[in-house]
């Protein structure tokens, strides 16, 4: 048996293709990102080693701070709206009182499976200042709040963040609903017998027991927000001006438009550090000990 499961050739055949591809396409590039962030490099020649100059320039670049700030705003908006709304929807659905639950679930989840291009194009037309749906809606309701949502540098990042919040809310809904279902019935039953209201039971028992689920949702939403790129690329192109730049967008711009690959790598390296920090903080704040049941 030992010989059977310790077959060296078989092990090599089974594991080497995956390990090789992963090493070349995933692991080597992440090392390269850090390594190249110390170079002045145009992507073609060998480049010159300049120590931490790229980082120094980054810290002197006002666009870098705009990008950081936008990443945080984006992350905050999607985290609060997605997890907030998803929690309410999931708790009500799990409660089983509302009729038409299957249809509701499908409705909440469907934007998740759409392509981000389709979603962004749709919302571009909804936000459009001249003939957009949003302004038409305000017109019908008699509210004078019409504006060109994406061309004001203050509202643009918020408008873009809401598109992402709208699209991936359903993902968090599905996660939280699965979390609710995994909490054993008897805990809620016990709370009910002890005279707790539904809201109390959810707040004091359900949510603490779902710490793992919430931790994942938080990490997913926050890092997703910090990494945001496609929404800006399609909807605003970073504009107006640089008002919707994020770190990823800054990286893309520097490397693939301006040709400063080293500078772009430094931006990417900062992004890794930022995401790592966020993950660590969330892990620190939520669920210090794993709850088993």
């Amino acid at each position: 048996m030992k010989k059977f499961l310790g077959n060296k050739t078989a092990i090599a055949i089974f594991t080497l293709p995956a390990l090789l591809l992963y090493t070349i396409m995933v692991f080597y590039p992440i090392m390269q990102t850090f390594f190249r962030s110390l170079y002045e490099w145009d992507g073609l020649t060998a480049g010159t080693f300049i120590w931490f100059d790229n980082y120094k320039n980054l810290f002197d670049d006002s666009v870098f701070y705009t990008s950081l700030y936008n990443g945080l705003i984006f992350a905050a908006i999607i985290t609060v709206t997605q997890i907030g709304i998803a929690s309410i929807l999931a708790f009500v659905i799990a409660d089983g009182v509302v009729k038409g639950r299957r249809l509701l679930r499908i409705s909440y989840f469907i934007p998740v499976v759409l392509s981000i291009t389709v979603v962004c194009q749709l919302w571009l037309s909804i936000y459009n200042g001249q003939y957009g749906l949003m302004n038409k809606l305000f017109e019908i309701l008699g509210i004078h709040y019409q504006q060109d949502w994406l061309s004001s540098s203050k509202s643009a990042i918020i408008a873009v963040a809401f598109v992402n919040a709208w699209q991936y809310m359903g993902y968090h809904f599905a996660l939280i609903l699965a979390g609710v279902r995994s909490v054993p019935e008897q805990y809620m039953e016990a709370a009910r017998i002890d005279g707790a209201t539904k809201l109390q039971a959810i707040r004091k028992i359900m949510i603490p027991m779902m710490a793992e689920t919430y931790k994942f949702c938080l990490v997913f939403a926050v890092t997703g927000g910090l990494n945001a790129f496609a929404n800006m690329y399609i909807m605003t192109g970073g504009g107006p001006g640089t008002s919707t730049y994020t770190l990823t967008y800054l990286m893309y711009r520097s490397a693939f438009r301006v040709g400063e690959f080293g500078y772009g790598s430094a931006a990417a390296a900062m992004l890794v550090i930022e995401c790592l920090l966020a993950t660590l903080i969330i892990n620190r704040l939520v669920a210090r000990e794993r709850i088993t049941y």
Partner: peptide, 17 residues
């Protein structure tokens, strides 16, 4: 480890590769 690496972060080396 690959699960924790966002693609955005390795885009530059990947494009070169």
């Amino acid at each position: 480890i690959g699960m924790f690496i966002p693609i955005q972060v390795i885009m530059i080396p990947l494009a070169i590769l």
